[in-house]
């Protein structure tokens, strides 16, 4: 269900917590599973839950509570743009609007070729870097301009 490499990474997370508290590793384990699979299908969540010895519903609760988990398929690149107030005030360009126009999709939608999903995000704790976005949750790009966005899109195949 998950690769040996992913399981080894999950084991390293489990080791951070007391031996009787394996459930503590669920957030990292779901993240690792998502990195491998792209999104968290029900069967993936169930597998991770069983691996940690916790009820599948408890793992499902975690997957649906935290908004960086993809509980539905997404494009190869999920672009999450912060649209919260401090970013709106600080930014010199409205890259959210620019991306919607450029990609021809709205918030929460995926381009027909399956390359991009555009998501409206909440505060990422980096307001001075506005406008900013996350590529697949983990790579943050700040102080974007329309030109920088064009360059990014052409790089992400």
């Amino acid at each position: 269900m998950l690769s040996a490499e992913s399981l080894a990474r999950i084991d390293r997370e489990i080791a951070k917590y007391p031996a009787d508290q394996k459930q503590s590793a669920i957030m990292a384990a779901l993240r690792i599973a998502q990195e491998e699979k792209g999104w968290l299908a029900e069967e993936t969540i169930r597998f991770v839950a069983e691996y940690l010895g916790m009820p599948p519903i408890a793992a499902y609760e975690v997957a649906t509570f935290y908004n960086m988990y993809n509980t539905r398929p997404v494009g190869r690149y999920k672009l999450t743009v912060c649209t919260n107030l401090p970013c709106q005030l600080t930014q010199r360009h409205d890259i959210g609007a620019y991306l919607q126009q450029k990609l021809g999709i709205g918030w929460g939608e995926t381009t027909e070729d399956g390359r991009f999903t555009l998501v409206e995000g909440e505060c990422m704790g980096s307001c001075d870097g506005a406008p900013l976005l996350l590529v697949n949750n983990h790579r943050m790009l700040t102080q974007l301009t329309p030109e920088a966005v064009d360059k990014l899109l052409s790089e992400l195949e």
Partner: peptide
Amino acid sequence: HHGYGAYICGEETALLESIEGK
């Protein structure tokens, strides 16, 4: 331990629940 997108976990007891895997 990393969060994964929930403002509420900055509240101290929510944060503890989150470390406990909930």
